[in-house]
């Protein structure tokens, strides 16, 4: 019961670690009339201290690496990290670039990967809904 109610209000934090803006805009598109993720209680909070789900887009550049770690540490548990798009998942679109760390999971633990370059809003939505299931498990574990 508690887990059920708790996971109905995932507040998201979106952070761009060097993406091309394609996935960022799809994250924004989620908030708007056509996709409207507020149906699931999702709100963009833009504040790590309020967030539950971190939506990370882009291959992690050297300069944003430390910022990403800070954001991750500031987010209170239980939390969920979703890597949106191919470049956040493994950084392959920017394979030749010298200034990227190749994927979010090289820097912080990632729970879910969303494929696509750029990933479609439907895919992100699907990931969030799947993520809510995982988040529920995390809440249960935290209760024990």
């Amino acid at each position: 019961m508690r887990e059920d109610a708790a996971t109905r209000s995932p507040w998201i934090l979106h952070f761009d670690t060097g993406s091309c803006n394609g996935c960022d805009l799809e994250v924004w598109a989620l908030l708007t009339p056509r996709y409207d993720v507020e149906r699931f209680g999702m709100v963009n909070k833009a504040n790590p201290k309020h967030a539950d789900i971190l939506l990370i887009t882009g291959p992690v550049t050297k300069k944003s690496e430390q910022r990403l770690i800070n954001l991750y540490n500031q987010t209170p548990d239980p939390k969920l990290v979703i890597a949106c798009g191919d470049c956040a998942s493994n950084g392959v679109p920017f394979l030749d670039c010298y200034n990227v760390c190749m994927g979010v999971d090289k820097v912080i633990p990632v729970d879910l990967y969303v494929p696509g370059c750029s990933c479609r809003p439907e895919a992100i939505m699907d990931a969030v809904v799947k993520g809510i299931g995982m988040w529920k498990k995390k809440v249960e574990e935290a209760d024990r």
């Binding site: 993406s19 300069k63 679109p93 920017f94 670039c97 010298y98 200034n99 990227v100």
Partner: peptide, 21 residues
């Protein structure tokens, strides 16, 4: 510089791939 990936270097590697990069 938070978004600096080094595209100009990568784009010089293969002119056909650059079209997509």
């Amino acid at each position: 510089g938070y978004n600096h990936r080094g595209m100009e270097y990568a784009m010089a590697q293969d002119f056909k791939r650059t079209q997509f990069l």
